[in-house]
Design a protein around this nucleic acid. Structure first.
Lengths: 149, 149
DNA sequence: CTATATCCGACTAATCTAATCGGAGATGAT
DNA sequence: ATCATCTCCGATTAGATTAGTCGGATATAG
């Protein structure tokens, strides 16, 4: 219910990891171990991101993935889109299934589409940079506490 | 993935039906037939809404449900909350499960909580009245097309 | 040529959601 | 008073979605 899939979680974690290491390629195993994620699953996620040209991949030893765009240029909406397809509040708003089961008397479709649009807008407005930056913010919370005494 | 459950759909349909008939009680069967919904499932949904004092119920023949509040006073967020519990973008933000599986190195928790809060705010801002009103609005779209020739 | 990568489809397992079933407790109408 | 028609509630089954696994192909640095 209104939750992100684990795939999206994993994608965000991996992307934030890569955003912090822009100078070199990181491979699937390395990232999976960092966050204790299932390697094969993460692999497929990274493959999709590479195919969508969010990441570049290089094969062979010393290979791995690297961010292709600046974190500011990547939106959470785009990531969701790539990995799970465009989300929809209700099934009848998905690109595949056009018909509301048998509900032809549905009176709430139009307003719900507006809500749906608001949700998509929200996701598009959030950049990967925003998802990454808060390491520094939580440091700003921690350090004063250490300094206090 | 970021979708409402059918229970929520059914709840919104039922509530919009009741909003259009404020003068009398409607029973489960009547509403279920109107939208071709499974009766027993709808029954449980209405029961929850009644328990949460969104609806009042009266038993026996001629009984049924009636809206207790004006549609403007009921938010979609509240309905979601009653039927499925407070939604959360990721599991670790739910009131029950406090711990991120094994991911202690999670770097994205704080920013995601902010996104989560934005989503909840959005749901709280949308009233049942908004979900109901668009019958008239979609008429405003249709009529000019008919008038055109 | 070999070890280490990405890549990709098909499959199984686990979880979550939808729907059904059985039966108890009100209450208005006859 | 009893009967038909409701609400009410827990337990269970069925179905759909998501998570995770497996086997094998292709690329490449050393």
């Amino acid at each position: 219910m209104l939750s992100l899939s684990k795939k999206i979680d994993y994608a965000l974690l991996a992307l934030s990891y890569l955003a912090h290491k822009p100078y070199r390629a990181a491979n699937t195993k390395e990232i999976a171990e960092e966050y204790a994620l299932p390697v094969e699953l993460l692999a497929k996620i990274l493959q999709k991101l590479a195919k969508a040209e969010i990441l570049v991949s290089t094969s062979g030893p010393t290979g791995g993935y690297r961010l292709l765009l600046a974190p500011e240029k990547i939106s959470v909406g785009a990531i969701v889109d790539i990995i799970e397809g465009r989300p929809a509040l209700v099934q009848c708003m998905r690109s595949d299934s056009h018909s509301c089961d048998q509900i032809q008397k549905c009176t709430i479709r139009t307003p719900l589409m507006r809500v749906n649009a608001r949700m998509l807008d929200m996701l598009d407005e959030i950049s990967l940079a925003e998802i990454c930056k808060d390491e520094t913010e939580s440091h700003l919370v921690t350090i004063p506490l250490l300094v206090r005494s």
